[in-house]
Design a protein around this nucleic acid. Structure first.
Lengths: 193, 193, 193, 193
DNA sequence: AATGAATGAGTATTCATTCAT
DNA sequence: AATGAATGAATACTCATTCAT
């Protein structure tokens, strides 16, 4: 997955345009313009508009997941690891707002094969998170719940906060650190007295 | 919001086609075909493809929210009320799979005005849920957490399970009742020992 | 050519809409709206949109020509007769500006048969004018020129002034009486010293 | 206003089709066919059907006006200059019959901005003609009439003859040279004995 | 006589993709 | 490697006209 300069320029331009317009309303012409190359050049490096979008999503998603995995390998405390995960994902929402939208919303237009690829990409890091949980259960930090469901709860919650704070049509502007603490608390303690 | 027969037929057809193809890949011709009317008839009842989509989403979302509100007015126990909410939303995911996708994914292509409408529609029922939580806090059933954040956690969690079980590219086929219990437990207790 | 009330209402509405939009951009719906009748009603009285336009033009053109013929039968002086003709036509331009435009410009869209009808209508009154000229030649008032060409010059000149003063994209607002005198003078004397 | 080959081909095809059908009944497809290019190619060179029409009219009108201006710069006699002007315009009617119709009739459908452009184009050469008249007045060749009105009379007369001889639904086939003499005589002498 | 819901042929325009240079 | 002119399939939308009521 080595990218040369031209590819990088095109991908950066694509990120901007897709983020702004979404997959279907973005045009290859505009991406080419933005990248400062001719339309044909895009087709030299990418098979199609869809392929370009895929490459973009894959690269961004990988970056996101990489960020998430960071905390996991450092032998940090459970709390720090989970907070790092929450934080990475919220940051992604906050920093790449438009692109996050584009990934979320235009996903529908993609073919099954690509969806599966993304699903597997997602699985790879949910499994990592699951491992963290499993270890916490074994260590007696967490009660004996399904690690799989636990991952779902955590990511769902983070997603909901990310959406609410950074993607909703109404601005909310809440600090990430604050949100991390709120999520962590609710996630750990539940809501019951 | 009285709908006559023709409008109902068109809206049903639209639900099917939008669910299958998403907003951008659905064509007005196909919807007309599916509805058994001429293309022009669609434009007699709806201003545009977008207007048709909006009407569809609005009607479906209202139905969903109505379902959610049901449990709230019956003076049921807190547990039953929450479980009813979780259940309604999961049912919507399960039963209207394609449409749920379409609503989620094509949302991006909509104009700000429409997004705001939907957002307000959403707020109306999150407020209802918030009231349930507030009462539970007052009754000493829940600890003293932000009701707003609590709604976010609950809906995020339900969404994540709904997505994972009913919208993901990999079939999971988990029963709704079971999922409701899992969500309720994790939501209430958290994951900590 | 007896017109009942409904036909009159429709024709009046058509005059307004065609004047405003021109034949091609006017819609039958708008005419029906303007007339306060249902679309179908128009088709009860007129065969088609084109037929409606034809009827309108015919009626307006007849009115115009009638006005022109007036002066001719009164045994008035040559000067008064000619000035009456010039005046009638200028008045039509001034008073029915939009309609005059519509008649002039949308003429192209009409079929040959209708054009011939209009041409003959036009001929009927050019012949009347020609008779006036012929008499003036016989009386020694005009020099011995082709009456046919003379009609062409007169109508062309009037048309040019009418267009310039009342239909051009730039407002000119010159009084009709004044214009009549200018035209009559130039027409009679020519420009040579 | 440099036109490359493709643009020239498209414009020629457009001239033919617009002349034949008029603006509203002409289709872009037919123009593309006639030009031997794909529909998309037209949109590569022209923004829209309307833009194509504008470009066509502008180019043809400029050609017409150029012809008219010819005689003016040669230091010819007054008579020759005027006859050249009459002749150019009649030739345009005779040679570009359909296009002249299209310009005249579809003018109504154009937007105000474009009408003004054409009006100014027209003014540019009426001013030239006015100068010729002014000089003739100063030289004592013409009597002291309004040069502006004189231009109107001349162009109106030429237009009426052009229309009658070359655009009317009835063929007249009169030679241009002959018509020029008739117009010049009537224009100069008037009709009065 | 009058209505207005229903029709569907007709058309401008867009844009991903190709390919000769 | 890079260009950008050329392509043409694809599609939303309009509106004159019909006809059952």
């Amino acid at each position: 997955m080595e990218l040369n300069d031209k590819e990088r320029m095109i991908l950066d331009a694509a990120a901007e345009v897709f983020a702004d317009k979404g997959f279907f309303k973005a045009t290859v012409s505009e991406i080419a313009n933005e990248a400062g190359v001719a339309k044909g050049t895009i087709y030299f490096y990418f098979e199609s508009k869809r392929d370009l979008f895929k490459s973009l999503i894959t690269s961004k998603t990988e970056a996101l997941h990489q960020g998430i995995r960071k905390g996991q390998q450092k032998g940090e405390s459970f709390e720090n690891q989970i907070k790092e995960i929450i934080s990475s994902k919220l940051k992604f929402f906050a920093e790449e707002e438009g692109l996050a939208k584009s990934i979320i919303y235009d996903y529908a237009g993609m073919d099954e094969g690509f969806k599966l690829e993304l699903w597997e990409l997602r699985n790879k890091h949910t499994e990592k998170i699951a491992e963290i949980f499993q270890k916490a259960i074994d260590d007696g930090v967490l009660r004996n719940i399904s690690v799989d469901d636990t991952v779902t709860v955590l990511l769902g919650t983070v997603h909901a906060f990310g959406y609410k704070n950074y993607l909703s049509p109404v601005e909310e502007d809440v600090s990430i650190a604050e949100t991390v603490d709120i999520i962590y608390d609710l996630f750990m303690q539940g809501v019951q007295k």
